[in-house]
Design a protein around this nucleic acid. Sequence first.
DNA 1: ATGAAAGCGCTAACAG
DNA 2: CTGTTAGCGCTTTCAT
Lengths: 356, 356
Amino acid sequence: MNDTKPKKQAAIAPPPRRSRRKNGGITLRDVAALAGVAPITASRALNTPSVVSEQILQRVKKAVEQTGYVPNMLAGGLASRKSRLVAAVVPTISGNVFLEVVQSLTASLAACGYQLMLGQSGYEDSREDELLEAIIGRRPDGVILTGIMRSEQGRKRLLNSGIPVVETWDLTDHPIDMLIGFSHEQVGVEVAQYLHNRGRRRVATLSANDERAQRRMKAFSDAAIALGMALPGETAVPDWVMQAPTNVGMGRTGLRELLARHPDIDALFCSSDTVALGVLTEAQAQGIQVPERLAVVGLGDLGFARDLNPPLTTVRIDGAKIGSMAAHFIVERSQEREVRAGIVDIGFCIVERGSA
Amino acid sequence: MNDTKPKKQAAIAPPPRRSRRKNGGITLRDVAALAGVAPITASRALNTPSVVSEQILQRVKKAVEQTGYVPNMLAGGLASRKSRLVAAVVPTISGNVFLEVVQSLTASLAACGYQLMLGQSGYEDSREDELLEAIIGRRPDGVILTGIMRSEQGRKRLLNSGIPVVETWDLTDHPIDMLIGFSHEQVGVEVAQYLHNRGRRRVATLSANDERAQRRMKAFSDAAIALGMALPGETAVPDWVMQAPTNVGMGRTGLRELLARHPDIDALFCSSDTVALGVLTEAQAQGIQVPERLAVVGLGDLGFARDLNPPLTTVRIDGAKIGSMAAHFIVERSQEREVRAGIVDIGFCIVERGSA
DNA sequence: ATGAAAGCGCTAACAG
DNA sequence: CTGTTAGCGCTTTCAT
């Protein structure tokens, strides 16, 4: 009852009580006392109601309402080793490409009572490492990475931490834990084939300088060359590389630059729909007919893609599915249910629309 | 030294030790033991290095490296009542309008060693309340809300929790704590004036059905009427309302619908740049000259706005500033430094570009 | 400058 | 079904 003897310790004999802050917040103790039960019983009433008698359940509920008690999940997490927090790392959210994943993740997690911690790593690896420390320190029940973790140090840290990890948006034979992604090389190859099938013979790329985009473009270029979509002797298709994160303006500039050097190109594979929007805009401004004179393919199938004029042909990756699968995996795992980790190639599809 | 007597308790006399999980994670104790100091000293070496001797500092650092120790911030937070976590609630991140704020928030917070927890409330108030409970339970050092908290229950919860709160993106005379926003009414009025100054006389609105957008549009409409930009007897300008969150396609549809009913409109105020992009696209598809025949004004100054054709005239709100101010406020507050809370009208500006 | 003790608020483990 | 006890891993308070 009276466990807060604030100041003035008695004298010499009993080890003097040091009062500690006790900031007046309502705790489970208070609720339990009010309900006339032990704290653990109140805890059970809140967390595993099925294991408590109806009568006590009601008393506890009432006490919670009266006091406005909100459980301290830091304390709960410390004791139970379940933080119900999941961390996600994306290069940036401003690019829009990862938004769908983040959105779906937040929603799926919230539905299970988990919260999302969001970190932006930028496109350089340097920030990723310190971010990782901050993340692991929070003992999240899972970590979702965009891309595969390349730094050996990062892999080790993650592995040692024992936290379930989902790497996404790429493929590798040696994921840390679970992997949900797709092959960027395959994207490049299929887009090249797609354009070839539609009669394009002079293709080019407009791409961000990030590692995954570069791999797509390399594969695209190689496939294009193999398909004969290049001038004799060329070892790569014309390209224009931009600093990530890219934007619409860069797409416009890119098209101008590319056209200045290679006026004869008839198809363009862009590293994102945002860039493609820039290309479409510039083409329209210059009176270049799309797709007649120039075919344009984007990547991401962002919200606006279908509604442009012409509608944008693009590579669709099901970000919502990545998000929900990742969330599912982590939630199951953190509840010690069996989930087979492993590699999921979620694939992609080329959405054929008007621009190509 | 040997404080882990794993199994086999002696016999009867001493109260039998129940071993608890002890999951093998490296703790501060381990580091301290390795460095040959007390745990608290190791703690000081990590958190307030200036207060320990150079020699011990080195020993602890070395022990940390050797063990790969990562501090458990759940435990630290519980003990110190500082979680170094900040929660942000946005209606949705897919709309793009709040991205700049989230981005800037994440960055500013990360720079101070804080992490962001992201919650999406949707545009209905219902989810907001349960989200709030999950958030408060985590005892974040601050909460950043998009919009002002309208539910009385929510306000009380937040107030009782004692957590610093920043409401954003709107203005009110009675914020919970701090407020960084702008007047949606003023936006409406100034855009009306802007269009009036440029000779537009038959304006309309294309708007999401969320509360703030509606207020902007109402103010816009009232101001337009007052300025004589309506037919005699009209009490509101033509409008088309869409379900939030809006997208480009809705903008296209909206323009068609509006034009079908009011072929004579010469200016359109859209509730977001995304919608405006749809309008521009549809106008282009229909051969409607912008701005000659139809002026278009957006809101948000999203990344693409300046790069459209014509460049989009829009209302710019400095989301990055909102984010960094909010972060600053919360960080200072959580370090018990004096920060004057209060109301900051961050304003907005109409960015004049080609579309109006 | 360093340390011992006492919790932060909660739950796992073990009784009854 | 309910309670007792002992921590989770860290930091505060007080003492040296």
